[in-house]
């Protein structure tokens, strides 16, 4: 059985809110190391891989593997009934068909309980190959989100070029074209505004900006984002969590 407690419901609420627009029915695999979710978005252009390590919970017990088949939007709806600073407990018996969520306020004089019906979801799993990425960029999550939002005014696609000079985001459409270039830099005051580039060879890939804007909704989860790219492969975009990550594998647009 699973019993997992978070000191603040907001930790789970904001993660579910960040990924809910892309996903539908998915399985959350729970075991002694934590909760893991891997799911393709409806268009199969983005794969979301979420890991919430057991040490991120104030109490965690999962003696036998439990699979929680649910619709992520239903989970988001139930989580909306929790205050951000409520103590949140997830509980599910082995082979149960429901997930019990309880929300307690810190003075423990109000407790809500919701039972979310679980489903059997036969989901296709993709094997994610270990990839040597030619380029790794660590930058501010908010700056990435803002840069992509600006370019989405010009086009539905962005080209990202990474070389030793820096990283360039460019877009071209009927209106015209635009680009933003960032040099590698270290910001001593607030580190998250640094741009750190590790490069084994230059790389350039193009991506759909609508899907990218869904991905950058995770900017609320982490101050920095790690972009990893290599020619002809999906990009890996990672937002680190206190004890885990939200990782996206994003298929590029390819010259036909």
């Amino acid at each position: 059985m699973l019993e997992a407690k978070l000191d603040a419901a907001s930790q789970l609420k904001k993660i579910v809110e960040a990924i809910r627009d892309m996903l539908g029915e998915c399985n959350i695999e729970c075991n002694e190391t934590g909760l893991a979710l891997q799911s393709l978005d409806k268009s199969h252009i983005v794969l979301v891989s979420l890991l919430l390590g057991s040490d991120g919970f104030s109490e965690y017990r999962c003696d036998r593997g439990v699979t929680l088949g649910l619709n992520i939007n239903s989970l988001a709806t139930v989580l909306r009934c929790a205050n951000n600073d409520d103590i949140l407990t997830l509980r599910s018996e082995d082979r149960a068909n429901e997930l019990i969520l309880t929300f307690e306020d810190s003075k423990a004089d109000r407790i809500s309980e919701f039972n979310l019906r679980l489903m059997d979801i036969d989901q296709e799993y993709l094997a994610i190959p270990e990839t040597e990425y030619a380029a790794t960029v660590v930058m501010s999550a908010a700056v990435l989100q803002r840069t992509l939002r600006d370019l989405s005014a010009l086009s539905e696609a962005v080209t990202i070029e990474i070389d030793k000079e820096g990283i360039r985001f460019s877009a071209e459409g009927d209106l015209g074209k635009g680009s933003t270039h960032f040099k590698p830099c270290v910001d001593m005051e607030n580190a998250e505004n640094s741009i750190n580039i590790t490069l084994s060879e230059p790389v350039s890939l193009s991506f759909n900006l609508q899907y990218f804007s869904n991905i950058t909704k995770a900017s609320s989860l982490s101050s920095t984002v790690t972009l990893q790219m290599t020619a002809g492969m999906p990009a890996q975009i990672e937002y680190k969590l206190p004890s885990g990550h939200v990782r996206y594998y994003f298929a590029p647009k390819i010259e036909d």
Binding site: L40, S43, H44, I45, V46, L47, E124, Y125, L126, A127, I128, P129, A157, S206, N208, M233, P234, Y249, A251, P252, K253, I254, E255, D256
Partner: peptide, 14 residues
């Protein structure tokens, strides 16, 4: 022109 790939073009099913 470019066309949008899907992850099935790169990742194999388990």
């Amino acid at each position: 022109t470019t066309q949008q790939a899907t992850l099935m073009n790169f990742f194999s099913k388990k």
